[in-house]
Computed example of a mutant assay.
Amino acid sequence: MKILFLAPLSPKTGNHTTAERIRSHIEAAGHTCELRDAADFQTPAQVTNLVSRNPPFDAALAIHLYKAGRFLLDMAAPFGVIFGGTDINEDMKVEQKRVVMEQVLLKARFAVAFTDKLKEEAELFLLSQSSKIYVQPQGIQTEAAEQFCWTEFLKSSGVSSQRGDELRVFLLVCGLRRVKDPLYLVEVFSEWHCEDPLNVLVIIGPKIDPALTVEVEAVTQRTAGVFLAQERSQQELHAAVKRCFAVVNSSVSEGMSAAILEAMDLGVPVLARDIPGNAAVVQHEFTGLLYSTPQEFVHQSQRLLSDQALRERVVRNGKLYVEEHHSLKQERETYQQLVDSLL
């Protein structure tokens, strides 16, 4: 079967990584899967023309009901959709987008939500299509680069590496866009750093929003204890995660943060902002720590510093959680079965 796969594909984002992984699952089952960036299309007619070319596509798949799914509405071929966090957390609030998302969900053969919470929200705010919404958490597989120099990483990020082994590096992994709120902790973290210079915050991720990138660059240059690192390959990023003290999430909204799950899989504690998408995967004091304000972030970080038993518990349970609930094998089987249903 020849399948068109539409998704928002900004480089080195969670969507891109997820789409590539799902494509590999589909192709492993013997299908041909062509991944295209939804941003390359302006109208459903363009996708309809693409699908009907010889040889035509037999079916389609899309990540994000609004950003990508809307382009499949005029297509005769069957399709399935995968919810993105933005669908439920942001696009649902805009009536015009919500109506389009309902149309996409009605026409889709199936829809996939990463968590039970996302499925519940979809059922609550969209026309009830409960029977066609499946829950399949993201499959996680981490691989750290073998050739990685932590000291060089710190130096290139602007961090003085003279006491590199003593530093407690909090790594905020996120694309630079508003929904990730990368500056949320900066002021309070800097105050904490001034009290204890061994605590530093390094922000790392692709520069997606140009205006926000300029702002983040300016703020980090003038703020003590907070640094902006150049984005790295996934293997290098995983190597950096393994060396850091904790991975931080400060997003306003999340579907399912791969950075959080990857940190858990790599045996690193997670400090995540207490929002529904994060609370769905981080159980406070069991698989990680949640915070609701910058001040609470510092408090939870201090607990992680002083309570070794707490640190060991969240690391152990976080890794077990990923192994039990985010199996790559289970994800592969689910998508292969769902794609077969498009025949």
Results as ranks from 00 to 15, higher is better:
A122G: 08
L185F: 05
Q302W: 09
S157T: 03
R168Y: 04
C244P: 06
P206L: 06
Q138I: 06
E146S: 15
L6P: 10
D196K: 13
G85K: 08
G139Q: 11
L105M: 07
S257V: 00
P276I: 00
Q300K: 12
D165P: 12
F83T: 01
D265T: 07
G164P: 05
A145L: 03
D196Q: 10
D58I: 09
H325V: 05
L343Y: 12
K242H: 06
Y66P: 13
W150I: 00
L201M: 02
L172R: 01
F5C: 00
D74A: 07
E187N: 14
A39K: 15
L289C: 10
K132C: 04
N54Y: 13
M101E: 00
E254S: 02
D307N: 15
V281S: 02
F71G: 07
A62S: 11
Q221C: 14
V281N: 02
D165Y: 14
K117Y: 13
S157L: 04
L342P: 03
W150Q: 01
I22N: 02
T142P: 10
F83I: 04
R222E: 04
E120Q: 07
S327W: 09
T287E: 04
L261T: 01
V159A: 01
M1V: 08
R98Y: 05
T334P: 15
S128L: 06
Q300P: 11
V169C: 03
A62G: 01
N317M: 06
T13V: 01
D265S: 14
V315G: 05
E254V: 00
R168S: 07
L126W: 11
N49L: 13
Q337S: 15
S341W: 02
R222G: 01
E191W: 07
V282K: 04
L237G: 05
A280V: 03
K329G: 09
L61S: 12
P55C: 07
N278D: 14
E231I: 04
I208M: 13
T220P: 11
E20Y: 14
T151N: 14
